[in-house]
Each structure stands twice: as C-alpha cells, then as structure tokens.
Write a protein that binds this DNA or RNA. Structure first.
Length: 575
DNA sequence: GCCGTTTTCGGCCCGACTGTTTTCAGTCG
C-alpha cells in the first residue's frame, strides 16, 4: 500500500501530541510538529523522493532521526516510536487535546489524577463536578469543557472559503461603519485564499476611544463571546464560525497584517531572517533593540529582512522565501486577466438558464467568450444530451453568435469518460465541436491502476481539449478518486492538451500543488467556473485564489488568452 | 529533535487573554 505524505504527517502530529502530554522536552515536541508541517507542504511524495535516492535530511526540519522514522513508516506502515508511546499514553487522550481550553498539561492532570482517557469519561467527570477540584482547574473551566463537548465544537469544523466569504463580507462592512475605525482587513487563511478556513482573523485599526470591540461582540450574528480584551476578542457566530478580532494602531498595521496572515511556518522563517539581521519582528513592528524601525505596511516588513513583497497566497513557509531571495517570485494571475470561461452549462442539461442568458451574464462581467459544455448522453441524472439534441444545440449557438459582435459562444461538451476510458460520443460528433472537455462522473472507486489507465486512455483520444476537475474531490463530502496525478500531468504535457482548475467552491481542483506541477511541465491550466447559472460566474474569484496558490501566472492560464489566440490553442490539441 | 557564514552545545517566535492564583501557568494563535 502506498504511504502518502499525509499519513506520515499524521503520525508525527500524533507523536507530538502524546509527547506533549508526557511532558517531553517542548522543543522535541515542536520538532515533530515542524516536520509534519514540512511534509504536508512538500508537493512531492516522500515515498517517491526516497525511491529516487533523495537525502531526506536536506529537508527543512528533518534530521537523521526523523529521516529514519520516515523510512521506517514508508517501509512498514508504522513507527515503532509511536507504538511505544501508545503503551505509555492512551491514544484517545489526543481527542481531549482538541477541546478548547485543554492543552497537554491539563490533559495530563486529567489522566494521572482521575484516569480520564475518553471524551465520555471527561464529560461524566465534568458533570459531577470532579474537575474543579483538580489543580489548575476551576468551576469556569469545568463549565466551558462541558459546553464544548455538548456543542461538539471540538470537531474542528472547517468552512469552505466561499462560505466564510458570505459571513466575512457583511461583518467587515459592519465594522467599517463603527466610529473611529480606520481600516478593516480579514487576514489568516482567508486572506491566503485557502480552500477552507477554520476561523476568521479580522484586523482593525481604530482610534483609542473607538467602541469597535464592544460593537464587535454586540454584532447580531454573535452567539457566544469566548474572550474580550482591549486589543483582542474571540466570538462564535450563529453558524459555528469562530471570529477573532484584533485591534492595532495604524503604525503597526502592516506588521500585524503580516503576522496574522501567516502562515505560521512563513512567519517563523521571516522572524529568523530578522534575527540574523539583529532585528526582532512581532505584530507591532520591526525592532532594533527597543526602537521600532518599521511596521506600517507589509512591504516595510519584507524590506526589513531584505525581501521583495510576497503575495499572501504564496505564504506557506515552503518555497516562497527562497524564491523571493533569488528574485524568482511569480507575477500571479489576477481576476482581470481572465478573458473567458470554458466550462459552462445551460438548462439543456443540468444548468438552470438558457445559453443566451449565460452568455449575456458572462459578457456583462467583462468576459469575451464562453464555451457551452453541457453533459453527454450517458449522464442521465444531469439530462445529458444525445447526439440529436447536441446537433440542435450547435445550430442554436450559430444563431446566437450572429447576435453578438464582441462576444463568442464556443461549441463544446463535457463528455463522460466511460469506465474503460472510451468517450461518451463518437469521434464524428466530437470533431464538430470547438472544445471537448472530458471528465469522470462515475465509478469513483476503481483501483489506482485502473483509474489512472482509464483517464490516460481518455487523454489519448484524438479530439479532447482538456480534462475537467481532474481529481473528482468534493471538499468536505468526497475525497479524490485514487489516480496517479503526476502521470496524468505528464500525459497531458506529452499529448498537448490542457487541465482544468474547476472553480466550484467545493472542487477547486486542480489543487495548488498540481497547478504548480502542471506549470513546471508546461501544461496550460484553464480556470473555469463550471457555471450552472448566471450567479456561478462569481466562482471564478475562488478559482483565481487557488491558481495563485499554485504559483500560476497569466501566461500559464489558457483562458487568459484573447479569442484569436485561444482558438489557435484549441485547434492545436487536435492530433 | 533540529540546527549552525561567531556555535557540534545550547539555543529554539512571541504576545494576549483567562482563570486560578496572589504573581503566574496554561492555552491559543
């Protein structure tokens, strides 16, 4: 069975948790956590790197001991050191760590003094008032633990970026209207454009006498106030989203924005660079001794450590700092660079607007072309078009195009890849289309070998233009099907076709890592909305975030091309 | 457990808030 990086990272995280509870050297604990973080951000499978003879100790935070453990896990599927820890500390204690307010020290007390090992035992002890007698615990802590178990807040719920946006936007508007407020920005993973966010970090600069903190906790969506100080507060909104508010002075705003945008690994690296220059960076600025030398803007923070500005989406503490030092940062694609959308449905299949409505909506947003790509005949559930209906649609598109002088509707289809890799229409049909998107909509559970062969065969087909939502995942609902994506990207490169970055909020697929691989192999990516109605064109903004996290520039994106160039590139896929 | 352009030993990012204390530990981000 292949061992993925995530499997190894999970083991190291668990070891860190258990060592923490064991009261091990905190820096040893941190070493495991750092290693887990490094591994998650690698972008290449460790198993593959090892097979290629890579020396793992060259990786950040991996020394001889952890490299040996990685090899052990890849070879055997487990780590003896973790097995040993399990004999000393019950694995279930890890669950207790996820309760807000419970850290390693208190979990250790719970286990040693009351032999509490599970959430259920914890709930029982809290209900019967036993916790408040423990050292370091009190009645309030006991109450909070009980409430948190009841509300299942410990489940670490994450929200789609798209969903968080729906709540962030009105809250920002609300805060901006508070007297004395000068600036409001949502930082954190939201600003970095992550697919999902665990909470919202909102940064505000305001006059000293501004009532912003009080107004924040009085916001009518707030159901619970966790903490509230003079510069920081934490609340929960009705939908369970946690929101942290921080208030800083204008002169510190850039430093705070950088600090609270993160990610953590990025911040730590930037701080270390500062240390090497005899400087100290915190959320209030850059300091030499006690003297603040900058902090008003993010640019000034980067400048202080000798770096050019690094876009928020790139800040994951992995490659971006080295690239910045070498002046090799990408000039990231922006929303305005998009010229069209190559994956759009109409009500002929499972969309809910006419082709003309979709075209006019796209045109209104400034796009110059769309491709109508309704589903093919096998996808009955989405009213896939048979050959006769598709023919009629092509004629209708001809008639519509005659109405536009500055906009083009391309003829396309989202063609099902059948179980054996054949396509759902004959070549004679496909040859009449401007664009053929192929996609998997069934048989998600094939073995890795069969799924990969299936998709590679589809890519080899004479008329295909691009592969849509290549991994098939739905965030929070369905994981990716098991496919060797690196082979798919290489095949697309050799075949000379394109890959989609589907902008639906729960897809965002290709993901960032594979976008970068596609770029490295010269495969153009198309950022498509997969719109089923006019409002869905808004999804493109999320696709842009994802593309930026994948280091894509304008030149790497197929639908950044004006129509004339695009058509040449579409024709070039016909082999 | 990792790391090193003063170091192979002795450091390791840093500050706010809460609750339980009586000056601070634990937790969190």
């Amino acid at each position: 069975m292949p061992i993925h990086n995530e499997d190894i990272a999970v083991i190291f995280d668990e070891m860190a948790d258990l060592l923490d509870i064991e009261n091990a050297n905190p820096f040893r604990v941190r070493a495991y956590r750092n290693a887990a973080r490094t591994i998650r951000g690698l972008g290449h499978e460790l198993e593959q790197m090892l097979a290629n003879g890579t020396d793992l100790t060259t990786l950040q935070g991996i020394g001889t001991s952890l490299a040996a453990k990685i090899e052990e896990i890849i070879a055997s599927g487990h780590a003896e050191a973790l097995d040993k820890l399990h004999k000393e500390v019950p694995a279930s204690l890890e669950d207790l760590l996820h309760i807000p307010g419970l850290g390693p020290k208190r979990v250790r007390v719970l286990y040693q003094d009351l032999n509490i090992k599970t959430l259920k035992q914890l709930q029982h002890a809290a209900s019967s008032g036993q916790l408040r007698k423990l050292p370091g615990f009190g009645a309030k802590t006991e109450q909070r633990i009980l409430e948190s178990i009841k509300s299942q807040r410990s489940q670490d719920k994450r929200f789609l970026h798209h969903t968080a946006h729906l709540y962030a936007d009105p809250l920002v508007t609300y805060l901006e209207a508070v007297p004395g407020v000068k600036q409001v920005v949502v930082a954190g993973s939201y600003r970095r454009g992550q697919e999902t966010v665990g909470d919202l970090d909102i940064l505000v600069s305001a006059k000293d006498d501004s009532p912003v903190m009080q107004q924040f906790v009085d916001y009518d969506e707030v159901t619970e106030v966790i903490s509230k100080g003079s510069t920081r507060a934490t609340v929960f909104l009705r939908n369970g989203l946690q929101v942290d508010l921080r208030v800083v002075e204008l002169q510190s705003f850039g430093a705070a924005l950088h600090y609270f945008t993160g990610n953590k690994a990025h911040n730590i690296k930037i701080r270390k660079l500062a240390q090497q220059r005899g400087l100290k960076i915190n959320e209030y600025g850059v300091f030499r001794g006690d003297k603040r030398i900058s902090g008003k803007t993010e640019e000034s923070i980067f400048k202080a450590v000798g770096l050019p500005y690094i876009q928020a989406e790139l800040r994951n503490g992995d490659q971006e700092i080295k690239a910045a030092q070498q002046h090799k940062l990408p000039e990231l694609i922006t929303y305005g660079d998009l010229k069209g959308d190559l994956h759009v449905h109409s009500k002929a299949s499972d969309g809910h607007a006419s082709i003309e409505e979709m075209a006019r909506s796209a045109r209104k947003l400034g796009l110059k072309y769309i491709a109508i790509t309704d589903h093919s005949q096998s996808l009955k559930v989405a009213h896939g078009l048979d050959e006769a209906r598709l023919h009629k649609q092509l004629e209708a598109i001809d008639r519509l195009n005659a109405k536009f002088s500055d906009f083009k509707i391309l003829k396309g289809s989202e063609v099902d890849i059948l179980e054996d890799g054949r396509l759902d229409y004959h070549d004679s049909i496909l040859s009449q289309l401007d664009i053929v998107i192929v996609a998997v909509h069934s048989k998600f559970h094939l073995s890795r070998a069969r799924q990969t062969t299936r998709i590679l065969r589809a890519i080899e087909s004479k008329y295909i233009t691009m592969l849509a939502h290549p991994s098939g995942r739905l965030l929070g609902e369905r994981s990716a099907y098991d496919v060797d994506m690196s082979r798919v990207i290489t095949a697309a490169s050799e075949r000379g076709c394109y890959l989609e970055l589907n902008s639906q909020p729960q897809r965002l697929d290709l993901n960032d890592t594979y976008c970068q691989q596609a770029k490295q192999q010269g495969v153009l990516v198309s950022i498509n909305s997969d719109a089923h109605g006019p409002a869905d064109f808004d999804n493109l903004a999320g696709g842009i975030h994802q593309a930026r996290r994948g280091w894509l520039e304008k030149r790497d994106v197929l639908n950044s091309r004006p129509l004339g160039q695009l058509i040449k590139l579409l024709n070039a896929t016909r082999c």
